[in-house]
Amino acid sequence: MKCDLQSKFNELYEAKPKYLAYSPGRVDLMGSHTDYNHGYVVTMPINLEIECAFTPNETGVVELYSCDFNTTIKIDTKTGEMVEGDDWGKYVSAVAKVLIDEGHVLKAFKGAFCSTIPVGSGLSSSAALEATVMAMLAHVSGFDIDKKNMALLSQRAENVYVGVNCGILDQYSVIFGERHKAIKLDCRELTHTQVSWPNDLMVAICNTNKPRTLHGSEYDNRRAQCEEAVAEFAKIDKSITHLRDVSIEFFHANKGVLSEGAAKRAQFIIEENDRTHELEEALTNGDYPLLKDVFNRSFEGARDLFEIANDTMGQMYTAMSTAPGVVASRQAGAGFGGCMVSLVYKDKLEEFKKGVFNTYKELTGIECIIYGVKTATGTHIEPCAQEVLEN
């Protein structure tokens, strides 16, 4: 990818790029929708990534080309407004605007990027783009942003200027990634612990080829129902500010004050939050029966309580759960389509992929895409190696 991308940069701008910026995608292993409820998430940055070749310029206009969409966007560095471009440029514009809101004076760059993160798959393609753009703008403009603030500002960009009321999970995951580790994120304290990854397992991401769309979807409805539950429970116990504060015992004793929808959403979040601790224990101890049980309960809750698992996801779950070499399977991301995830024995990956592909096609008529992925390093910038540029 690297040499082709740099060649594309040269073709577009008749110059060589000075830097390469990277951000990984991410897949959550446990903790669907727990992030905005101030809970815990076990997440894994993955080696499906965005890579961008770039160099500073003095025009006052960011010019960024997407190899995947074959379009260029231009952003005014004084206002953050997109003066030319495509729909994906709204994420670039949003990042520029939040940095301007923070009082930063932005300088421009020209760049070209490509991505191996499937768009609309629930693997954080938008968060990876936001983090990459923020890192590049900070780099060429001469100011530093610590990782936590970068995650918060990227989240604000998506909340305020893109219009998606997402939590912190995606941005934090792609920025803080480390090789050979999963991350257990505390979404209230914005701290994390590293969870060791078993040597004999890898993650298989199974793309249903039914893209999801958060904007205008049921995502905001689910969040509102969680907030409704908190408001009712806070009338009983004023210390409750988020569903993280609610034990399963308190929930069952007081669920009668909730509407049916809010009760189902709250039960899922409370149980899902507890499952993150179980998953950390299972990964640390190599307890694969517990891994399977925790994953199964998560999918069942996503389907029956949070109602984010559509028919296509159910068919993919069947295909994954019956394939050779599988240890555990569940939903990925926010649900409503997109990708799902399995933990698979490394030496059985190809058999697993063949089994899932055939069963899913038989059930749906759709040919799915399956990725075997590894852990990855979070957002970072490297200088272009001169010897690479000259080859």
Rank of each mutant, 00 (worst) to 15 (best):
V105A: 00
V105M: 00
L106C: 01
L106K: 00
L106V: 01
F109E: 00
K110Y: 01
K110F: 00
G111K: 01
F113I: 04
S115R: 00
V119M: 04
G120M: 05
G120E: 05
S125Y: 07
A127Q: 07
A127C: 11
A128D: 04
A128S: 14
L129H: 03
E130M: 03
A131T: 15
T132V: 07
M134E: 11
A138S: 12
A138Y: 06
A138W: 06
H139A: 05
S141P: 10
S141H: 05
D146L: 09
K147P: 06
N149F: 02
N149A: 06
N149I: 08
M150Y: 02
M150F: 04
L153V: 02
L153N: 02
L153Q: 14
L153E: 07
A157S: 15
A157Y: 07
N159I: 14
Y161K: 11
V162S: 04
C166E: 05
I168S: 06
Q171M: 05
F176N: 11
F176E: 08
G177V: 02
E178I: 07
R179S: 06
K181T: 09
K181V: 06
A182Y: 12
A182F: 14
I183T: 10
I183C: 09
L185V: 07
L185F: 11
C187Y: 10
C187D: 09
R188C: 03
S196V: 14
P198Q: 05
N199K: 15
N199W: 03
V203I: 15
V203M: 07
C206G: 13
C206P: 10
N207S: 12
N209A: 10
P211K: 11
L214D: 04
L214P: 05
G216C: 13
S217D: 11
S217M: 11
Y219W: 08
Y219L: 05
D220G: 13
D220K: 13
R223T: 14
A224V: 02
Q225C: 07
E227H: 10
E228M: 11
V230L: 03
E232I: 14
E232K: 15
F233I: 12
K235T: 06
K238F: 03
K238I: 13
K238E: 11
S239V: 03
